[in-house]
Computed example of a mutant assay.
Amino acid sequence: MKTDYWNVSDEQVIEKTGKKIDDWMQLLETFNAGEKKSNEVVAYLQQEHNVPRY
Protein backbone atom coordinates (compact mmCIF):
# COMPACT_ATOMS: atom_id res chain seq x y z
CA MET A 1 0.00 0.00 0.00
CA LYS A 2 1.26 3.44 -0.83
CA THR A 3 2.34 5.43 2.19
CA ASP A 4 0.57 8.52 0.74
CA TYR A 5 -2.74 6.97 1.75
CA TRP A 6 -1.71 6.91 5.38
CA ASN A 7 -0.49 10.50 5.62
CA VAL A 8 -3.55 11.40 7.66
CA SER A 9 -4.03 11.84 11.37
CA ASP A 10 -6.43 10.01 13.65
CA GLU A 11 -8.24 13.31 14.05
CA GLN A 12 -8.85 13.56 10.29
CA VAL A 13 -10.10 9.98 10.10
CA ILE A 14 -12.31 10.43 13.16
CA GLU A 15 -13.75 13.61 11.65
CA LYS A 16 -14.71 11.79 8.44
CA THR A 17 -15.63 8.35 9.79
CA GLY A 18 -16.16 8.54 13.54
CA LYS A 19 -13.43 5.92 14.10
CA LYS A 20 -9.67 6.01 14.64
CA ILE A 21 -7.31 4.39 12.13
CA ASP A 22 -6.58 1.57 14.61
CA ASP A 23 -10.31 0.89 14.91
CA TRP A 24 -10.60 0.51 11.13
CA MET A 25 -7.51 -1.68 11.00
CA GLN A 26 -8.88 -3.98 13.71
CA LEU A 27 -12.25 -4.15 11.97
CA LEU A 28 -10.57 -5.10 8.68
CA GLU A 29 -8.38 -7.65 10.43
CA THR A 30 -11.40 -9.25 12.09
CA PHE A 31 -13.07 -9.42 8.66
CA ASN A 32 -9.88 -11.05 7.25
CA ALA A 33 -9.77 -8.35 4.60
CA GLY A 34 -6.23 -9.32 3.60
CA GLU A 35 -7.53 -12.66 2.35
CA LYS A 36 -10.44 -11.23 0.37
CA LYS A 37 -10.80 -9.50 -2.98
CA SER A 38 -10.95 -5.72 -2.84
CA ASN A 39 -14.54 -5.62 -4.12
CA GLU A 40 -15.58 -7.91 -1.24
CA VAL A 41 -13.93 -5.58 1.27
CA VAL A 42 -15.56 -2.52 -0.32
CA ALA A 43 -18.99 -4.22 -0.27
CA TYR A 44 -18.52 -5.15 3.39
CA LEU A 45 -17.54 -1.62 4.36
CA GLN A 46 -20.44 -0.14 2.41
CA GLN A 47 -23.08 -2.53 3.69
CA GLU A 48 -21.97 -2.97 7.28
CA HIS A 49 -20.35 0.39 8.05
CA ASN A 50 -21.96 2.86 5.62
CA VAL A 51 -18.64 3.74 4.01
CA PRO A 52 -19.18 5.43 0.63
CA ARG A 53 -17.54 3.88 -2.44
CA TYR A 54 -15.51 7.01 -3.24
Score class of each variant (00 low, 15 high):
Met1Arg: 03
Met1Asn: 08
Met1His: 11
Lys2Thr: 14
Lys2His: 15
Lys2Ser: 15
Thr3Arg: 12
Thr3Ser: 11
Thr3Cys: 12
Tyr5Arg: 10
Trp6Thr: 09
Trp6Glu: 05
Trp6Pro: 03
Asn7Ile: 13
Asn7Met: 05
Asn7Ser: 08
Val8Ala: 15
Asp10Met: 03
Asp10Val: 08
Asp10Tyr: 03
Glu11Val: 09
Gln12Pro: 09
Val13Ser: 01
Val13Thr: 00
Val13Phe: 00
Val13Asn: 06
Ile14Pro: 04
Ile14Val: 10
Lys16Glu: 11
Lys16Ser: 01
Thr17Met: 06
Thr17Leu: 04
Thr17Ala: 14
Gly18Glu: 00
Asp22Ala: 05
Asp22Ile: 02
Asp22Arg: 01
Asp23Ile: 01
Asp23Cys: 01
Trp24Gln: 00
Met25Leu: 10
Glu29Pro: 07
Glu29Asp: 08
Phe31His: 10
Phe31Asn: 10
Phe31Ile: 14
Phe31Val: 14
Asn32Ala: 14
Asn32Val: 12
Asn32Pro: 09
Asn32Gln: 11
Asn32Arg: 10
Asn32Met: 10
Ala33Cys: 01
Gly34Gln: 02
Gly34Trp: 00
Glu35Asp: 05
Lys36Phe: 05
Lys37Tyr: 08
Lys37Pro: 03
Ser38Ala: 14
Asn39Ser: 12
Asn39Thr: 11
Asn39Gln: 14
Glu40Ile: 11
Val41Arg: 00
Val42His: 10
Val42Ile: 15
Ala43Pro: 07
Ala43Leu: 15
Tyr44Cys: 02
Tyr44His: 03
Glu48Asn: 13
Glu48Cys: 11
Asn50Cys: 10
Val51Met: 13
Pro52Val: 14
Arg53Phe: 12
Arg53Tyr: 12
Tyr54Glu: 15
